[in-house]
Amino acid sequence: MGDKSTGLGHFLRTRRDRLRPADLGLEAGAGRRVPGLRREELAQRAGLSPDYLVRLEQGRDIHPSPAVLGALAAALDLDADERDHLYALAGAARRGRADCRRRRPRQQVRPGTQRLLAAVHGSPALILGRWLEVLDQNPAAVALYGDLRGGNLLRFLFLDDASRDLFPHWEQVAERTVGFLRATTVADDADRGTCELAGELLLGSGTFARLWAGHHVHHRMFGSTRFAHPQLGALTLDHEILALPDPDQWLLVHTAAPDSTAHTDLMAHLMLRPEALRI
């Protein structure tokens, strides 16, 4: 949070540190004092002056051209998600410092979106807002996660020990979630609520602080998640994340193939909770 120009600079530094000189045909050398490329080496690969790269990394130049960003993306060997993130960070840097004094109105779920959520009966589904607030969830999601309505998925994941019991591959889920947050909120002007949440997570979870500082970007909108459910035991469900028409709102749905053991176990559990199957 805070000055977004430093976000661009920090992202550039983390990606420069990630590159291995030996992979680029450069001598590692016993006297090398940086884990990745030196600024001079990256500047040469990108066709930039070292002084200009210093200004970018220190947040003293917030107007890099698309050509410069493209050269940096190629020189840093960024993937598609990271390239998009770089361009978004550059746009955020131009807009300047986030205003943590402003408090925006609480996000609302439209009636049409609520009907859509209710129609996804039998499959756990959540509506997430900016910074992954749980704006609503269907009864099947309550059966799977517990009642998170009005809370925040990040708080549950990083500040509630129950999440480590629910996710046997907790570190993987944590990295994927922070990467998704990085990819989807970079252009979002911070308000008081998001600044307070960021401070709470940075102070309360060393893992969140490490992952956030690493600038990992993950924009894959589907995948699978393993659960260690207290009633069902080991359970692997697929997930899809769908962008909703309302800004900064997402629909997260967990499913299982109809003939899979996971589907059979999930439906058997929900049959014991009739409220989780209501339309």
Rank of each mutant, 00 (worst) to 15 (best):
R83E: 14
G59L: 06
P66G: 05
A75E: 00
S65M: 06
Y52W: 15
R101V: 10
D79S: 08
A88G: 06
G91S: 12
L56V: 10
L76N: 00
L56D: 01
P64V: 05
A88R: 07
Y52I: 14
G96L: 03
V54D: 11
G70M: 04
D51A: 14
V54A: 11
A98Y: 06
P64W: 09
E82M: 10
H63P: 09
Q58M: 13
R94P: 00
L53F: 01
D79L: 10
Y52D: 12
P64S: 06
A74V: 13
L78R: 07
R102N: 12
P64E: 04
A67G: 02
L86K: 02
D51N: 14
A73S: 10
A80E: 15
G59C: 08
G70D: 12
A75R: 03
L69N: 02
D84L: 12
R97A: 11
A93S: 08
H63M: 09
A98N: 15
A88D: 14
A67D: 10
V68E: 02
L53W: 00
G70P: 05
A73N: 04
L86T: 00
H85W: 08
L56I: 06
L69V: 04
D51M: 11
A75I: 00
H85Q: 13
L53E: 06
A88S: 05
R102W: 14
G59V: 09
Q58P: 14
H63R: 13
G96Q: 03
R95C: 04
L76C: 02
R101N: 15
A92P: 00
I62M: 13
D84N: 14
D99M: 07
S65L: 08
A67E: 13
G96R: 01
D77Y: 06
L69C: 07
H85M: 12
R101D: 15
S65E: 02
L78P: 04
L56T: 02
I62L: 12
G96E: 03
R94H: 09
A71Q: 12
G70S: 07
D84K: 13
R60F: 02
E82K: 11
R97E: 09
R102D: 10
R60I: 03
A74M: 13
G96N: 03
R94K: 11
G70W: 05
C100R: 15
L89I: 01
L69H: 04
A93E: 02
A92M: 03
A80I: 07
D51P: 00
H63W: 09
L76P: 00
